[in-house]
């Protein structure tokens, strides 16, 4: 395994009686894009704040880049760029001035800072808006400015809290592409939290499912799906007409099929192995017209729902 960059050990945070983060242990190696996935209020932001030393853990420890976040917060913050959800900028300053301020807080001179800020503004596609006041920026532009702001200190790790919240789908796609690209080119370790399953799925190497302060499962998406769905590793979606009852019965009886869900003429078939060819043959021999047949891998959506349906 590669060198670990973020190490959480038995991390716990309590607010009065409420346990926000419950004995969380997690290790993230260098260069990985890790998605922390969970519903609102699961404790994602609290975990992130503890990594940055902005909140003290009740017990347990956080180490980032070899420094204890609680004791050596300054060292950690030197190496970690943090983009809070709904990042704020000084509205009266231009985008460039906002970046320059951050650069100078990180000990860069005015000249170095300006050069680096301009390069980064170009990188995130804001060079035309560099001279405009940050107050006039749209949500998506602010988010991209936020990314530039995070990168100006040349961090080893970047932590993004709900980075895609409130941006349009096209903007999200571009933003995530940018993060992926940065991570690969600069060898950045990225931790991003989200409750948007699909987005995280697109770019993360690994995801952790975080609910009510506990990490329920960790792994890459196919791995998680195997871990959770066990036998029912394959989902086949098909549309047939007229979709008679006798066809459904023989479908359910087919070897390898574990379940059939029917909505209108669309069938969702859970199976142990790929049985699409058998389904096609069966449909044709039963006199059904087959309109559509596709095999799907379980996405995070299903993984997610399965957890909540299971009441875990």
């Amino acid at each position: 395994m590669r060198e670990p960059v973020i190490v959480l050990e038995e991390l716990t945070k309590q607010y009065g009686d409420h346990v926000a983060v419950d004995h969380l242990s997690l290790t993230i190696p260098r260069g990985e894009i890790f998605g922390l996935l969970g519903p609102n209020g699961a404790g994602k932001s609290t975990t992130i704040l503890m990594m940055l030393g902005l909140t003290e853990p009740t017990s347990g420890s956080v180490h980032v880049c070899g420094h204890n976040s609680t004791r050596e917060a300054i060292e950690v913050k030197r190496k970690v760029g943090y983009l809070p959800d709904d990042v704020g900028f000084y509205d009266d300053l231009t985008g460039l001035e906002n970046l320059l301020f951050t650069a100078r807080l990180n000990g860069l001179s005015r000249e170095e800072g300006t050069a680096r800020a301009q390069a980064l503004l170009a990188r995130v596609g804001l060079e035309e808006h560099a001279g405009k006041k940050a107050g006039t920026y749209s949500r998506g532009m602010r988010q991209r400015l936020g990314l530039a702001d995070v990168l100006i200190k040349e961090p080893e790790v970047i932590i993004l809290d709900e980075p895609t919240l409130g941006i349009d789908p096209e903007g999200v796609r571009e933003f995530l592409k940018l993060i992926r690209q940065l991570s690969k080119e600069e060898g950045l370790t990225v931790l991003l939290s989200s409750h948007h399953l699909h987005q995280v799925q697109q770019i993360c190497d690994r995801v952790g499912l975080f609910v009510a302060g506990r990490l329920l499962a960790v792994g890459d998406v196919p791995g998680l799906s195997r871990q959770l769905f066990g036998q029912e590793a394959v989902l086949i979606e098909t549309r047939v007409s007229p979709c008679s009852d006798s066809f459904l019965e023989s479908l359910a009886a087919m070897d390898g099929v574990t379940g059939v869900d029917k909505t209108a003429n669309t069938l969702k078939i859970h199976a142990r192995r790929d049985v699409s060819a058998d389904i096609a043959r069966l449909a044709v021999s039963a006199g059904e017209s087959l309109h559509y047949l596709a095999q799907q891998e379980y996405g995070l959506d299903e993984i997610y729902h399965r957890y909540f349906e299971g009441g875990m």
């Binding site: 940055l52 902005l54 913050k77 970690v80 809070p84 709904d86 704020g88 509205d91 990180n106 000990g107």
Partner: peptide, 14 residues
């Protein structure tokens, strides 16, 4: 309220 405080405090300053 502007959300700049958390950004400011995530810089390496006390």
């Amino acid at each position: 309220n502007k959300g700049t405080l958390s950004r400011l405090l995530s810089q390496p300053i006390y």
